[in-house]
Design a protein around this nucleic acid. Structure first.
Lengths: 178, 178, 178, 178
DNA sequence: GATGAATGAGGGTTCATTCAT
DNA sequence: AATGAATGAACCCTCATTCAT
């Protein structure tokens, strides 16, 4: 808190006038960060697109979030403070990943109803898709083994995720009549 | 350090005779932890099994590792200290995930050659399989949103990973002649 | 000070316009509190009562005062600040206990003159009666060992005080002719 | 704690090596103070004395304790910290007053059995006796209205306490045959 | 080589006080 | 005259590190 106050240019007391505790400050910070990025994710699915196109765009957004230095810094903080400030981890998860997951699983449910996908368990499938988006790059980036992810690599991961996901969840006789 | 000394059964002074600083102790500890863990993963694939069986066992081993409190503690530490101790992160990655990935991709290559799987890029596919094993549980556990993963949930994740992976990488006309 | 300001419904700045420091506010507060409390004690002795009845009512009033959370809070403050603010302690004592003592000793003197009690030193006896009213409960309550005094216990203490006091100060052949 | 450490001439860290918390330090301090003074009170009652003599000596000891600057300082501390550290108040009470009360009530019970006193409720009577010992001087001393109690005054208070107490609890036809 | 008592910088938090508006 | 944002010293406590024994 002392360091934050110093870098912000105020006193510790002032910091505590705005946030009743470190956890609250963190929560606010995280919520803010998440709110901003959720704007991006909320309009990925114009209904007219093919599932493949929508998934691709969702994958791009998710990867961009998971690879952004800002978001990774938050992730690191939350993870190392999760022991002392459990509320923090919860706030982070609910404001970020949880909402993205909900959004994707809602969309999967719709597509499933429309017959464009066959997804028995949309919640689980959404988790799988996001997991696939972590292929290779996310962990390496979090561990700072790579400075920045190559755009071509990102493209490949997303394509790979979409491709594998659709092999599992597309209707078996693909779109004959349409 | 006091607690470590107490649990090891020596004095703090002695600890400092062996490690010049906490960071050094840490570093050694993680390297050691990584070495140990590979023992488990090196014998998952008796060649006679069906790919599904082998993948399932590999998935179980990987998940067990990623969900173990010990390994998660290491992961948290490495991740939050990656900025200050890059060599630590590299050591961790190479000793742990890297070797597991190599092993799996080697096996995928063999299976591909044998025609039991169709895997154009085994390195990438191995990464995908491991990513799928992180579905749902790993992140929640790292953030301490769940205390312990339910065995049934773990089972479901592994089954889901294997199933989706095989839909993508099994030969398209499955096992006609065999 | 923030909390006081909030409960009073003004800003901290305003509080400091009226009181130059917390100690000053404090001092005024206690003086005020002392003034108020005397209202209760001034009309305990309608002259026609038996001494026992009057003592009982005085004991109840005294105990109620000594056990009230408000008065105990003042007592605690005054006691712990007595070193730094001696005038505060004096004001508290003179406005509260002193006046009660005077009142009781005046009454004892009257009763003694009337022959209903035998009290050689009314001042001292008044002190003794008040001391007896502190039996058991007052100290425990000040130390917060008990949250609230049981009404039955209070009753018992007062009865005990009156009883012991009268055994010492009632005429030896009680009220033969009257 | 900082101030204590400074006055003791050690660092704050060292203080915490010896006492795990402020409450613990306080408790130890208080217990120590109480242990010391209890030595004095444990041998007040050679069995052969008249009750009056024993009570007188007990009263002297109790008053000496309650009026000692050291003990009053403790009392003030405990009282003003009782809100934040309730264990403290309990430790103080049990180590000091409680033990004295137990001792006196045990003795009262013995005397009652021996027929030298008539005490229906020895616990309550012990509380009353101690309360009587607070006549006049204790409160004034705690509030620092008097610097030191006059020995003659102390003598008078104890005599008064013993006298009133015995008028209440001595056998009604005093010692005819003995 | 082993010990553990001592250290002191830092942790998060509170709160009486000030001062520009 | 009233405000409340800003302050900074103080609060209790932790812990990596040192050093005389």
């Amino acid at each position: 808190m002392a360091r934050i106050a110093r870098e912000v240019g105020v006193s510790k007391g002032t910091l505590y006038n705005y946030f009743p505790s470190k956890a609250a400050l963190f929560s606010g910070f995280i919520a803010m960060g998440c709110d901003q990025s959720l704007k991006h994710i909320l309009d990925i699915a114009p209904a007219e697109n093919q599932p493949e196109e929508t998934l691709y765009r969702a994958g791009r957004v998710v990867m961009e979030m998971m690879l952004s230095p800002f978001r990774q810094a938050i992730h690191r903080m939350v993870m190392s403070e999760a022991g002392q400030f459990p509320e923090l981890a919860r706030a982070f998860f609910e404001a970020g990943p949880q909402r993205a997951l909900n959004y994707l699983s809602d969309w999967l449910r719709l597509e499933s109803t429309a017959g464009r996908l066959v997804v028995p368990d949309p919640d689980f499938a959404a988790e799988q898709f996001f997991a696939l988006c972590q292929t290779k790059l996310v962990m390496r980036s979090r561990l700072r083994l790579i400075e920045t992810a190559e755009p071509a690599e990102v493209e490949r991961v997303v394509r790979g995720a979409v491709s594998l996901f659709l092999k599992g969840y597309a209707p078996s006789q693909p779109v004959l009549s349409s």
